[in-house]
Amino acid sequence: MSTGEYKSARQQGFLLCRHCHSLHSLEQQHQRCDVCQTPLHSRMEHTLQRSWAFLIASVICFFPANLLPIMTFKSFGSGAPSTIMSGIIELFSKGFWGIGLVVLVASIVIPCLKIIGMLTLLLSLKFHWRTSARQKTWLYRGVEWVGRWSMLDIFVIAVLVALVQLGSLASISPGHGATAFAAVVILTMLSALNFDTRLIWDKYAPTDTQHHDT
């Protein structure tokens, strides 16, 4: 394997502070970094447990987020509550294909892909799947980069609710689906944030040093 020739900092007795990127010796584990004063850990503590916890919580919130109405539009006393999906269908039926696609990608596709992506990463570490570490790293980077963009629908609701307040003429009120949706976005972001990518590469490091130790 081509990655076999590389050695990690931990194997050679070093530890990187992830805040200020200064290098320390491994003995300083659990002490504070002398530059930025944050606690030093060779790998993030409880990274997999935390990542799993946030991911499972986000999956739970995913259902109310898509089933409960996110807002209700009322004009002259009549109107129906709309969910995320019905809002997208409405945009498509009005002929706004481009913008409908943007909302579809931001509110349905990205949260789904984020959950599936994190699930793949966590399961592959749990069951030691022999997949490319480089691909997994890019998968993580994709999840991390794209994560915040699913907040889009929350801001759309915020703008609509503030603008359309014309009494009985027309008004939009927010629904509780929005709370669940915001929770999905934040929880998946936290799940990604608590995942230590260095664990992906630890599996590929030469194991000779560990064998000598044990």
């Binding site: 900092a9 990187l16 992830r18 570490a133 990518t197 260095r198």
Partner: peptide, 15 residues
């Protein structure tokens, strides 16, 4: 010190 002549990757811990 040896720590000042090396850097480590924050994503994969390569020295």
């Amino acid at each position: 010190t040896p720590t000042s002549s090396f850097i480590a990757c924050h994503d994969c811990d390569l020295l």
